Simulated scan of single mutants.
Amino acid sequence: MKKTDPNITRHTVSTTVTLTNGVPIESVSNIHGHKNLRTTHYYTRVLNRKVSYYMRTLK
């Protein structure tokens, strides 16, 4: 069994489970215990990059 980095797990949950399913970013911030919403905004940048990548592959 491959060992998983806890931070990768947090990022995956934030981008694929919560944000893509319409959970408000404030809720995601609370779930992760972020004191500053800017910390949570990092996850939206990751999500936007993934969307941009997939859109380019469709062309």
Rank of each mutant, 00 (worst) to 15 (best):
S52Y: 05
S14D: 08
R10Q: 04
R10P: 04
S14E: 02
V28C: 02
K50Q: 08
V13A: 05
V17F: 15
T40E: 00
N30V: 04
T44S: 15
H11Y: 06
N7P: 08
T4Y: 15
I8N: 08
G22P: 01
T12D: 08
T4F: 15
I8L: 13
P24E: 00
T39P: 02
N36L: 05
N7S: 13
T39A: 01
T4R: 14
K2V: 11
P6Q: 02
I25M: 06
T20A: 14
V13P: 00
T9V: 15
V13G: 01
T57I: 15
N7H: 15
V17E: 12
Y42A: 12
R45I: 14
T20S: 14
S14W: 03
L47K: 12
H34L: 11
H11S: 08
T15Y: 02
I8G: 06
V23R: 10
E26D: 03
T20W: 02
V46F: 10
I31P: 10
V23W: 10
I31V: 14
Y54F: 15
V51H: 09
E26I: 01
K35S: 15
T15R: 10
P6N: 00
T40S: 02
Y43W: 01
T18G: 08
G33N: 10
L47C: 00
K2P: 13
T18S: 13
S27K: 04
K2Y: 09
Y53D: 09
S14L: 12
R56L: 09
K3C: 06
T44Q: 13
S14C: 15
D5F: 02
N30G: 10
S14G: 15
T15G: 00
H41E: 12
K35F: 05
T9Q: 14
H32Y: 09
P6Y: 08
N7R: 11
T12S: 09
P24W: 00
T18V: 04
L58F: 12
M55N: 13
H32R: 04
H34Q: 03
Y53M: 09
N36Y: 14
E26N: 02
T57Y: 14
M1T: 07
D5N: 13
L37A: 04
Y53S: 11
T18H: 10
V46E: 03
R38I: 12
V17Y: 11
M1K: 04
D5Y: 04
L19A: 03
R49P: 05
R49D: 06
T57K: 14
G22N: 01
P24K: 03
H34P: 08
L58K: 13
T40N: 03
D5K: 07
T15I: 08
L19M: 08
L58T: 07
K59T: 10
H34K: 03
N36T: 03
M55S: 10
L19Y: 03
N7Q: 15
H34E: 11
T9M: 12
L37F: 05
H41D: 05
L19N: 02
T9N: 09
V51I: 12
I8E: 13
T4M: 09
T20H: 04
L37Q: 01
R38W: 08
R49K: 08
Y54G: 07
T18D: 09
Y53P: 02
S29I: 07
T12K: 00
K50Y: 05
L19D: 03
